[in-house]
Amino acid sequence: LDITFHVDGKNIHVHGASEEVVRIIEELIKNNARAEEIKETLERLLR
């Protein structure tokens, strides 16, 4: 699975993920999660 995301100002662009995963990533970023935390969360979800 190949998910890429980047933050452009306040806009979060996520590619290669389901809508549910996109929402989770957006929440994590809004809550100022570190990249490592986001990665760990995604790995748990995608197991």
Rank of each mutant, 00 (worst) to 15 (best):
E19R: 09
V14G: 01
I12T: 01
A33E: 06
T41M: 14
A35S: 12
E37G: 05
H13T: 12
I12P: 00
E40W: 04
G16Y: 04
H6V: 15
L28F: 05
V21A: 08
R47C: 06
I25D: 00
F5N: 05
L28I: 05
G9H: 02
A17N: 01
I38D: 02
E19C: 04
G9I: 01
G9L: 02
V14R: 00
K39F: 15
L1H: 10
E26D: 11
K10W: 14
L45N: 04
I24L: 11
R44D: 11
N31Y: 02
R44K: 13
K30F: 10
N32Q: 12
H13G: 01
D2I: 04
E40G: 12
I3M: 10
V7M: 03
S18M: 04
R44E: 11
V7W: 03
N31T: 11
E19Q: 12
H15I: 11
E26W: 10
L1P: 06
E26V: 12
R44I: 10
F5R: 05
I38Q: 01
V14N: 00
V21P: 00
A35P: 09
N31Q: 13
E36W: 05
G16R: 05
I12K: 00
D2K: 07
I3N: 02
L42S: 01
I29M: 06
V7D: 08
N31H: 11
I29P: 00
V7F: 05
E20S: 10
E27I: 10
K10S: 13
H6S: 09
E27L: 11
L42N: 00
I3Y: 15
L28S: 03
R44V: 12
H15L: 07
A35T: 06
I12L: 08
I24H: 10
E40N: 12
E27G: 10
E43G: 11
V7Q: 03
E36P: 09
N11S: 14
I24T: 11
L45M: 11
A35R: 03
R47A: 15
T4N: 15
F5T: 06
A17F: 02
E43C: 02
D8F: 02
I24N: 05
F5P: 04
L42I: 12
K39I: 15
I38S: 01
H13K: 05
R47Q: 14
V21K: 01
I29G: 01
T41R: 09
A17S: 03
T41S: 11
E37F: 10
A17C: 03
D8R: 01
H13R: 06
K30G: 09
D2H: 09
G16P: 01
G9K: 00
E43I: 10
N11Y: 14
A35Y: 15
E40S: 13
V22M: 05
F5K: 06
L28Y: 04
L45C: 04
A35K: 04
G16L: 06
D8P: 00
D8I: 01
